[in-house]
Amino acid sequence: MAAQDDIRTAGTDNMSTDTFIKGLWKENPVFVQVLGMCPVLAVSNTAENALAMGLATTFVLVMSNMLVSSLRNFIPKQVRIASYILIIATFVTIIDYAIQAISVELHKSLGAFISLIVVNCLILSRAEAFASKNGVIASLLDALGMGFGFVIGLFSLGAVREILGNGTFFGMGLFPNGFQSWIVMILPAGGFFTLALWLLLFNIWKEKRKPA
């Protein structure tokens, strides 16, 4: 598998830019790896929610990747998953408090999905597949790349859903009065439709780029 090869070669020589870039595009967590679908579908109903969720996930991803990486020689193999979950849960709790302290409104609209970052398989998979085998700097870059890739994915969905479903972008009206909003887009079903659309576009684009 291409992904696994990259993981092993990354972090060795001058691969650090690639470590960062691959998460954004080639191994984008949403469009290529299709990981962490629960928040992607559930909290992408507006651009703002999507961005906040993406950044919260990125924070947890960066912090846990760095801590896992720096503790990688200390954690025995048998208890590594338990240790990772403990570390991830800690940072999720921290970001949960932080968001509450920033805005009660925002915390209400993100709701249970903040706590559910714990079970976002993207974070555990980066801890297991990358951070536990690479240095702190490489892990930081990997987490940043994957995190921003996740933000891009969430934001692509959130923007489409908010513009069509509400006629606004970051709460600003885009259309003249009387715009007919596509209510399905802000409902859960709209998340599935929009994700399917983006995956379709992504795959068409990949097919086109493939040398014949």
Binding site: Q180, W182, I183, V184, M185, L187, A189, F193
Partner: peptide, 10 residues
């Protein structure tokens, strides 16, 4: 069904 979900008023 999609129309019903998208434009429930109309």
């Amino acid at each position: 069904a999609i129309l019903q979900a998208a434009f429930p008023v109309a």
